[in-house]
């Protein structure tokens, strides 16, 4: 990190026209859903659940968004890292059941942290291999990329079935993360607050790295114009591998969280959430972290409100949301990449 040169900042810096409307969207959706839900306490429960789900979806989507923005690589296998995260988390929690069931907050937290770390590490390693075997060989060819990574997703999913079985697995949250707090008449599950916290930390962390570090500068610059970054002397290949692996790790982290959120799932957990991630990426706009966050929150909120009011069309509501946003802004909420 270089120390910013103290250039005298005069008064007339052009005020950046901040585009607030997308930021207000989740709020608008929340308000609009109020009459749909009716009961204010139910609404509060749903809103918190939606935000928590949104933060988890953001955690798993952010890596894909960066990879897509930075290298124009569309990884249809991203869901594989999420599924891996969920199963690795399971593999840590099940043998350590005594810690999970212990009444000690410390042991509970320790086992939770351990599961998260394991998910992150395994997803990172697999991500590195995935990139080498499936993405680098077809770099620059969208069609083959989509096909190769789809193949990768299927392979990983089948390997998970071979290792952990094809049946639905279910497991318990660590004891102190179970249950809910009562907020008035609204029951707020503890784990959702935890998920909100972790997701927010990921967002802030990403934002800090992207705006305050030199690597972050390179990533943001590369997302917008990779060629110019190369012509300025930076080798983007390593940067890409790094971002890809970190993206996979974030997907692994989010995978553990998503698995615990669902509490029972099958190996298709990754392929299922892939759909939501794509919707988020399209809504958010290419290469924008904030857009990705807003997209994820919108998807989380919509899923919960509609899931409550009309469960059968929950997935359609997200597609409808995406279509509406594309009608409004064909390039997504915010767009950094100009391709």
């Amino acid at each position: 990190m270089s120390k910013p040169v103290t250039a005298p900042v005069t008064a007339d810096i052009p005020r950046q026209p901040v585009d607030w409307l997308p930021v207000a969207l989740p709020l608008i959706v929340a308000v609009a859903a109020f009459p749909l839900v009716g009961n204010p306490w139910t609404w509060l429960t749903l809103t918190i659940a939606g935000l928590a789900m949104g933060m988890i979806i953001f955690t798993v989507s952010s890596g894909l968004m960066l990879v897509f923005g930075l290298m124009d690589v569309l990884n249809f296998g991203h869901g594989a890292f999420i599924a891996l995260g969920a199963y690795v988390g399971l593999a840590v929690l099940i043998p350590l059941t005594p810690w999970v069931e212990a009444t000690s907050v410390l042991l509970n937290s320790a086992v939770f942290a351990l599961a998260l770390c394991a998910g992150v590490i395994v997803a990172g390693v697999v991500g590195f291999v995935f990139d080498r075997l499936l993405i680098q060989p077809v770099y620059g060819n969208h069609l083959k990329q989509i096909l190769m990574t789809t193949g990768g997703l299927i392979i990983v999913e089948q390997l998970i079935r071979a290792i952990w079985g094809a049946e639905t697995v279910s497991f318990n949250l660590p004891a102190s993360l179970r249950g809910s707090w009562l907020l008035g008449e609204a029951a707020v599950e503890r784990y959702r607050i935890v998920a909100l916290g972790i997701g927010s930390a990921v967002f802030l962390g990403l934002l800090l790295v992207l705006t305050r570090t030199r690597i972050g500068l390179m990533i943001r610059a590369g997302v917008e114009n990779r060629e110019m970054l190369e012509a300025m002397g930076y080798r983007t290949r390593h940067l890409f591998v790094g971002v890809f692996v970190v993206g996979a790790m974030l997907a692994g982290l989010g995978g553990v969280m998503w698995g615990l959120y669902l509490q029972n799932f099958t190996a298709s957990i990754g392929a299922q959430i892939n759909v939501l991630i794509f919707i988020v990426i399209i809504i958010g706009g290419l290469g924008s972290t904030t857009g990705c966050l807003i997209g994820a929150l919108l998807v989380g909120l919509t899923s919960n409100y509609v899931g409550f009011a009309a469960p059968k069309i929950a997935l359609f509501s997200n597609i409808l949301l995406m279509l509406l946003i594309l009608l409004w802004r064909p390039q997504g909420l915010y767009r950094v990449v100009d391709r």
Binding site: P4, L217, R220, A221, V223, E224, M228, M232, V336
Partner: peptide, 12 residues
């Protein structure tokens, strides 16, 4: 790099 500030463009 239009998303970066003038300072960030030069620093990079």
């Amino acid at each position: 790099f239009s998303d970066l500030t003038v300072a960030e463009n030069l620093r990079l």
